[in-house]
Design a protein around this nucleic acid. Sequence first.
DNA 1: AACAACCTCAACCGCATCAGA
DNA 2: GTCTGATGCGGTTGAGGTTGT
Length: 215
Amino acid sequence: MAPILSHDSMKRGVKPLEKSVNMITTKKEVNKGAWTAEEDRKLAEVIAAHGPKRWKTIAVKAGINRCGKSCRLRWMNYLRPNIKRGNISDQEEDLILRLHKLLGNRWSLIAGRLPGRTDNEIKNYWNSRLSKKINQKGMQSGGSPREGIINNPKAEGITKVVEKVSIQMVNEESNNTSTNIGCEHSNIGFNVDEFFDFSNEDPLNLEWMSNFLEF
DNA sequence: AACAACCTCAACCGCATCAGA
DNA sequence: GTCTGATGCGGTTGAGGTTGT
C-alpha cells in the first residue's frame, strides 16, 4: 500500500515512498524522512489524548515507527495548532531583524516573539533570505551584527537578561497577538516595538540596555 | 526543451540542559 | 551527589521546486 502524502508533501511533490519506506528495514530501525498524512493523523490523535509530552511514549502509542524526537519536531513545526505558515510579513521580518541584532541566533527566543511562527521557520527564513540581505548591507557598511554580541562581553551579559525578559514577555503574552504587551499583571509597561527598535542605534552602543538593567 | 545553478524548507543530528529516580 | 532518560535548541543536510541560460 502506498503511503498517503501529507498536505505539504503533496504540495511540494515530495515522494516519501521510496526513501521513507526503504528506511524501514527489517531491523528495529525507526522510520525517517517525510511524514505521511496517515502518520500525522495518528500522531495528532495520540497527542490529543495524552498531551504533548513523553514523546517516546507518544511515538510508541502512535505506532508510526518514529523516534520521539521526530514526533516532537513534527508537532512543534507543523501539527501544533495556531501555526502560521509562509508569507512572513514586513512587520515580522523587521522584528526578526531587530531581535536577531539583539539576541543573535537564539531562534527559539525570536520565535517566541512571533506568535504562530516556529524557530525552525525563522531559522530557515534567516538563513535563506535575511542573512543575504544583511550581508549585502554589511558589504556596504562593514561588520556583521553577530560580531557585536560575540566580541562584546557586556552584550553577552545583556543577552542573558533579555532572554529572561523575553521568556517573561512570552509567558505573559501567550494569548495576546498584539505587539503591545498586555501588562495588566506585570509592572513592566512599554511598547515592544519601541523597545526593540534599534534602527537608529549603533549595534555596539548598548548603553541604553544598562539603563534597562538598572530599571 | 534541456540542463545547471540556485533557493526553499522539512527533517535529521549532535549537544546541552533539565528533571526525576 | 550521581546517573539516566527526556526535552529543547541550533546547525546542517538533502530533496524538490524555481529560475536563468
